[in-house]
């Protein structure tokens, strides 16, 4: 099974998040049939694994969510070889699938073609790595994260949630389409476990200011200092593996990383009432 070719899956960068798309989603998280996405970890809804070892697997839950995952670069990449990275000190790995082999990661993407590509890519990666069983821990759904996250995730289920290079929606009238907004942050806080992390990266200064403002103002999020970012393997992963960051790196030259990206990391903190 060969990897899908991106040129057959191009789509414009925007999709109206408020429109009534015809999407499939479960009526509530417990009705979600995860076996279609992670066949190694879940049996069909209502069925059970027979042996002890496997029944432990069914207790697994998706813990990482990549919202607006695009072509799925963060989840898992094509290349197994070491990629040339501008900063030499990074121990580079490709994608969440490799870096967190024990964690189930799910990408969510609204654009139909792009979601289709990412899905085919994951299937091909699994097929190619059959012997090692790699890439079984990543999957993607076509979903509108702004409206339908509660149908996929339970309260406190997620350990990490990613918003990488989201649509900046420059016009003021389109600000309500932005994926980071005061309203939606309350939703994200609901899905995150206490101590869970929200990652956001953008190469648009204006959006960065907006995100920092709303995340800082939200009572349930606390900013993590730039100092602490250095030790986080996920940050390096984000900067190097996601498709968008590769594009930005290609276009913007290699040594400008610090100037191009605005990374921010927020910790979800529980406020006691």
């Amino acid at each position: 099974m060969s990897l899908p070719q991106k040129r057959f899956f191009r789509q414009r960068a925007h999709s109206n998040p408020l429109a009534d798309h015809s999407l499939e989603f479960p009526s509530c998280p417990s009705k979600m049939d995860w076996s279609e996405h992670f066949p190694l970890f879940f049996t069909k809804l209502g069925e059970r694994f027979n042996d002890e070892e496997n029944s432990m697997k069914t207790k697994k839950k998706v813990e990482f969510a990549d919202v607006g995952c695009g072509y799925g670069g963060l989840l898992g990449s094509f290349c197994e070889v070491q990629v040339t990275v501008p900063r030499a000190d990074i121990n580079f790995k490709v994608g969440l699938a490799d870096t967190f082999p024990e964690v189930l990661s799910l990408g969510l993407e609204l654009r139909a073609k792009v979601a289709d590509y990412a899905h085919k890519k994951i299937l091909a990666l699994r097929e190619q790595n059959k012997s090692t069983g790699k890439y079984q821990n990543i999957s993607i759904v076509r979903a509108n994260a702004m409206k339908y996250l509660p149908y996929f995730f339970e309260k406190g289920q997620l350990k990490k949630i990613f918003f990488l290079f989201p649509d900046p929606h420059f016009k003021k009238s389109k600000h309500k389409w932005r994926i980071i907004s005061p309203h939606l942050l309350s939703d994200y806080a609901y899905f995150l476990a206490v101590g869970g992390l929200l990652y956001t990266v953008t190469d648009v200064a204006e959006l960065y200011e907006w995100e920092i403002k709303h995340l800082s103002e939200h009572p349930l999020f606390m900013r993590i200092s730039n100092e602490s970012l250095k030790g986080d393997a996920t940050v390096d992963l984000i900067l190097n593996s996601s498709e968008e960051s590769k594009k930005v790196t290609r276009q913007g030259g290699d040594n400008k990383m610090g100037e191009i990206y605005y990374v921010s990391l927020f910790l979800f903190a529980l406020v006691v009432f």
Binding site: S27, P150, S186, F273
Partner: peptide
């Protein structure tokens, strides 16, 4: 108008208690 019921704490509504999901 979607199928959602949202239960938020009051007056600290940024803290969502639950979603009641099931309506079609």
């Amino acid at each position: 108008r979607d199928e959602k019921i949202r239960v938020s704490r009051f007056p600290n509504t940024y803290n969502i208690a639950s979603f009641c999901l099931g309506h079609d």
